[in-house]
């Protein structure tokens, strides 16, 4: 469903991504890990065209992301994205956060959008918070609203960029629980995270990035069982110790 082929990207003369290739099948969960600055955010943002790339290709359900003439807003509306810092719209209520794009992008009737919003808030356990504003919620609640906002567009796949790394430890699980359920329901997901418990539980494959390269790309069991590269071994021993 998502095919990343030999993608390279530069910031000026600095190469952020080097010849990255991987793919995600429908219903699969791909976990992306690697040290800070290795290009994980950049790679995931290339998938929905938030970041342009200079070489290679990314194809999402037959649509080439980098091609001239691609309707990027339409493509993005079909790919849900969840950010490290939530990025809810602070001037809109929780319900408006969920309905605005449904109405303005998908053209849904406001009543229909509200129904959808309520259903999703119920699903992430926040139905009572519909009238509140983002700043009145805890970090974990905000991130669950952000997931609901993305799901409101009926995405064909979800992209998560370190969804729990800005959260206090006691809130991480409430967000991971929502993600695990989503994965088990068959959602196609690309997840940048260091939550290896989550990866073991639901990932089909794990890729390890370092210095803009995909060093390791393996089925989850193989990745944790016998990682091949020295750097992945080191990285794993570091984060698993915590």
């Amino acid at each position: 469903m998502i095919e990343i082929s030999n993608v390279s990207k530069w910031y000026g003369s600095f190469r952020v991504l080097h010849d990255c290739t991987t793919r995600i099948e429908k219903g699969e969960v791909l976990v992306v890990c690697g040290p800070s600055g290795s290009g994980k955010s950049t790679l995931i943002k290339c998938v929905n065209g938030l970041e342009p790339y200079q070489q290679g290709g990314i194809v999402v359900e037959g649509i080439s992301v980098g091609a001239i003439g691609t309707d990027l807003p339409k493509l993005r509306s079909r790919l849900g994205m969840v950010f490290q810092n939530f990025e809810l719209f602070p001037h809109l209520s929780v319900m408006e956060n969920l309905t605005l794009a449904q109405v303005k992008v998908l053209g849904r009737a406001p009543a229909e959008a509200r129904d959808k919003g309520l259903k999703l808030l119920e699903r992430v356990g926040l139905k009572e918070q519909a009238a509140k504003y983002p700043a009145q919620l805890s970090g974990g609640q905000q991130q669950r609203v952000a997931i609901a906002r993305a799901l409101a567009m009926d995405p064909i796949a979800m992209l998560f960029d370190e969804p729990t790394s800005a959260l206090d430890p006691e809130m991480i699980n409430e967000v991971l629980d929502v993600m695990v359920r989503l994965a088990k329901e068959g959602m196609t997901m690309m997840v940048v995270t260091h939550e290896m418990g989550f990866a073991r539980k639901v990932a089909n494959r794990v890729i390890f990035m370092d210095g803009g390269e995909i060093i390791e790309d393996a089925p989850t069991e193989d990745f944790f069982g016998k990682p091949r590269s020295e750097r992945a071994v080191q990285f794993l021993s570091k984060i698993l110790r915590h």
Binding site: K45, N48, L50, L72, P73, K74, R76, S77, R78, L79, M81, F83, N85, E87, L88, F89, L100, A101, K104, V105, L106, R149, A150, M153
Partner: peptide
Amino acid sequence: RGQTQAGLAVGFTLPQTYRYI
């Protein structure tokens, strides 16, 4: 950049992102 990216990510065009966010 966060709010711009969030606006674009839900499928708004750039003018819509300015207008609504």
